Amino acid sequence: MMDKTTLKKIMPFATDENIDKFLPHLNDTMATFEIDTPMRQAHFLAQIAHESGSLRYVREISSGKAYEGRKDLGNLMPGDGPKFKGRGLIQLTGRINYSAFNDFTKKEYNLLEHPERVEQPDLAALVAGWFWNRNKLNELADQDQLLKITKKINGGFNGLEDRTEHLERAKSVLLRGK
């Protein structure tokens, strides 16, 4: 179980309020998806730190209009781009991905009608773990493959320097106990 002090060392720019809000859900998510070794946790938390701006954002800042009509994301209906823009601690994007996560939750949250629910702390953390698991990122974390993990999450290498800094800090805390 991750404690508040450890998470604060990994994400020094996260507010105490946000750490308190997300920490129990991150712990549940890491247990659920076997993100259970220091290396796996270091990679997972480093990516979350970048993607969420150290737990500040659970919704993409842009409008989502750039995703309008993107068939690869399943955005076929008018308004799907903004409706299914990135949400969660690792940004869930596109109707097809919301639908898959909705199925995973057994449609309990009706996410296709209420995608904003992914912004709730429990679902924001859960979707990050679900994405991590779905893309077999534990295996890449075990091999310390930052570039491959980043590519799976981002589709490219956006923010690589920041992701690297977070990873080095997380490894220092989790693997070396500093």
Rank of each mutant, 00 (worst) to 15 (best):
A42G: 01
A100D: 14
K148A: 05
R176D: 12
H25V: 06
K171Q: 15
T29P: 00
E108F: 05
P115R: 05
I149A: 02
N102H: 11
R176G: 08
M1E: 11
S62V: 14
T164N: 14
N75Y: 10
T150Q: 07
Q120L: 14
S172M: 15
K136Q: 15
T37S: 14
A31L: 09
S62G: 13
E168G: 13
K148H: 09
L23F: 09
L175R: 15
G159P: 07
G155M: 06
F33D: 00
L112E: 11
K107W: 09
A42P: 01
R176L: 14
D16G: 04
D16R: 07
S62C: 14
N158C: 08
S63F: 10
K21G: 02
D144R: 10
Q145V: 03
N75A: 13
D20S: 14
L26A: 04
S63A: 12
A66S: 14
R134E: 15
A46F: 00
F101E: 01
E116Y: 08
N135A: 14
Y57M: 10
P121G: 07
P24E: 06
T37P: 00
T29A: 05
I10K: 02
H114G: 06
F101C: 04
N135K: 14
L89C: 03
G69T: 05
F44D: 00
S54W: 07
P121R: 05
F157P: 01
I149Q: 02
M39Y: 10
F131D: 08
G94P: 01
Y57H: 12
G74N: 03
G155Y: 02
A170G: 07
S99C: 12
P78V: 11
E17Y: 06
K8Y: 06
A14L: 05
G159A: 09
R117V: 11
V118D: 01
G53A: 08
N75C: 05
D3S: 08
K152T: 00
L26R: 00
F84M: 03
F13G: 08
K8V: 05
G53D: 02
A31H: 13
E119S: 10
Y98G: 01
P78E: 12
P115A: 09
N154S: 10
E165G: 15
L123S: 00
K107C: 09
A141V: 07
L26G: 01
D162I: 07
K106N: 14
S63N: 13
L23I: 04
A100E: 14
A14D: 03
F101G: 02
P82E: 05
G156E: 10
L76R: 13
N27Q: 15
L137Q: 13
